[in-house]
Design a protein around this nucleic acid. Structure first.
Lengths: 338, 338
DNA sequence: AAGCTTTGTGCAAAGCTTTGCATGAAGAAA
DNA sequence: TTTCTTCATGCAAAGCTTTGCACAAAGCTT
């Protein structure tokens, strides 16, 4: 019936010893006699004692919580990364508290504030698509609170970051298209200020260069990373006087948006137009046709982010940029002859 | 530089007043003079004071955390429900801590223990597919810890539960198939002990009855809710001497597994075989052909679960079974003539 | 037997907040 | 001037754990 948890005090009273004796006995402190230790442990077991994390936290000045901020929680990409973070956190006895920015700058700032007020031990963050100023994170850095970014990152010179090798990946996509005989390769990018946009664009251009293809500015379209805006971007590309015969979308949602746009025009994939996404494994296989894509090792990204986080927890002045290798997996959406 | 948070003590020292004065001033306690209140508030603002939740928690015996246990976190269905829970929790100043059972009974038990040790204020749970005994939850009930189940539920007579109207939904699926001219309707179910299996089977049978269709036991297949096992179940159905011309899968993963099984045999959907899922909105639209399905109001389920949770927090001895209406959305996978 | 070491426990502070009760001063009433 | 209010503020306990230091008793040495 009683809701109350058993405390050291309760055990101490019952055994007629002091709280400190109980505390030490439970930790096998050598000062305590062996019989006492056993007696205490037995009772603790019976009463189902577990130490109060609030008291511990107060003492140790730590909550054992990691705050994670993502643009949204329902996209498989983020859900899977969160799962990766959590797998490591749990091992270390930490909890993960998730906040969603909903791709909004204001909500991101708010989430940071809330999590800090809740005294999380640190933050793991993927920037919202709107975020262009970083005061809120600079404050975190000044306060010496561990901070790790992944995928969409900033302040790389001061905090740990985990990203995919975007340049290399984009280059490989271009080469893959070339191998499959595609000639005019378009790129649907995201907001210019995001590192993923910059890096993937750079890789795309390097790839074109290496492939001996000309760079046509009209083949680079912008979108805000939403499905709808990606679909419009695709439509614009298809309305070009000289439309592309291949498209590379900057991330999973964009790839789907592009696919919808293509299907709407009754064009065939991969015959009329090749499509490659920058996507996580799961989504790529569920659509029709299966999407050729650079697949992110999402779970691993999460784990790496957590790893960097704990490294930072140990060593105040550490930070590190992890660049994870990606995989180009060829599927039906861009393979013409097989 | 300094990592330390400002405490009431710091403010008190700086102002040469006592901690209690500061505490009361911040809450506009009438005992404190107006000037003092203003002075304190100003300094608190400047120093960016925020109360330490650990100390508050210790005092109030509450952590402001809700533990949520789901079979997995990457499935859109659960992710979206969690988002629903969180939206309400956040409003009330609570945090959500997520644990995944991975569909394993042991891990579920472990998750319950861990969350209780972490002193969550209560639990919102969807059972793992393996869970058949409920000791771990009965213990929670005895300890008077608020508990709410959703989707896969148990102990309905003692705790709040949120489910879809499974019987009604299943009936509607059968009628829909009949309207589309399908004659032999199969059902791929899950583990028998789960309420969703029982209820959806019941609805299926009632539906057949109402439709004037005979019930053929061989048309009810069992699977363990994994994609693979659902695919095998589908294969078994297709190998029947008299195979079905319509299939209804018990949930989203099963519907996808069935779809894979059907495609593998080069059968056409909906021409050769109709398919209806019990799915959340998102997945249904991303596959090809788009899946007719009973769509769960996932976000709303989460919100309702949270609502019941807070109701229980207020009133010790409350519990309530919420049954949410579902939607049958007709899409290409089961519509023959349109 | 006196003094020293060893062994086993207890005290109390720190970490932070809230809140009932006490205290002190100032002002008002007698 | 004395006593009683009133007003503003401080004290201390509670909530729980860890840990440095103090203390007491017992056993040992000389």
């Amino acid at each position: 019936m009683g809701n109350r948890y058993i405390s050291l005090k309760d055990l101490a009273n019952e055994l007629n010893v002091s709280i400190s004796t109980v505390s030490r006995a439970l930790k096998d402190h050598p000062d305590i006699s062996v019989e006492m230790r056993q007696k205490v442990k037995k009772l603790a077991q019976e009463r189902n004692y577990s130490p109060n994390p609030l008291a511990m936290g107060l003492l140790k000045q730590t909550t054992g919580m990691i705050g994670v901020i993502v643009p949204d929680v329902v996209t498989h990409f983020y859900a899977s990364i969160i799962a990766g973070i959590e797998s490591l956190a749990r091992k270390k006895g930490y909890f993960v508290v998730i906040a969603s920015s909903g791709e909004s700058y204001e909500k991101e700032v708010e989430a940071v504030e809330n999590l800090v007020k809740a005294r999380v031990d640190g933050l793991i963050v993927c920037l919202s698509r709107e975020t262009q100023t970083y005061h809120h994170f600079e404050k975190i850095i000044e306060q010496n609170i561990p901070l790790v970014f992944f995928d969409r990152v900033c302040l790389e010179d001061r905090v740990s970051c985990v990203t995919a090798d975007n340049i290399d990946a984009s280059k490989r996509i271009v080469h893959h298209f070339k191998n499959q005989g595609y000639k005019r390769i378009a790129f649907i990018s995201g907001p210019r200020h995001l590192n993923i946009s910059k890096e993937r664009l750079a890789g795309y251009m390097e790839g074109l260069n290496e492939a001996g293809y000309p760079f046509s500015p009209e083949l680079v379209e912008q979108c805000n990373l939403s499905l709808e805006s990606a679909k419009s971007a695709m439509s614009r590309l298809l309305q070009l006087p000289n439309p592309p015969d291949a498209v590379f979308g900057i991330n999973d949602t964009v790839a789907f948006g592009a696919m919808k746009g293509i299907k709407e025009r009754k064009l065939r994939i991969p015959e009329d137009i090749g499509l490659v996404g920058f996507t996580d494994e799961f989504h790529a296989t569920v659509v029709e046709p299966p999407l050729t894509s650079i697949t992110h090792p999402t779970f691993k990204i999460g784990q790496e982010a957590a790893k960097q986080f704990f490294k930072r927890m140990k060593h105040q002045d550490t930070h590190h940029v992890s660049i994870l290798k990606t995989n180009l997996i060829e599927r039906a959406s861009s393979v013409r002859n097989s």
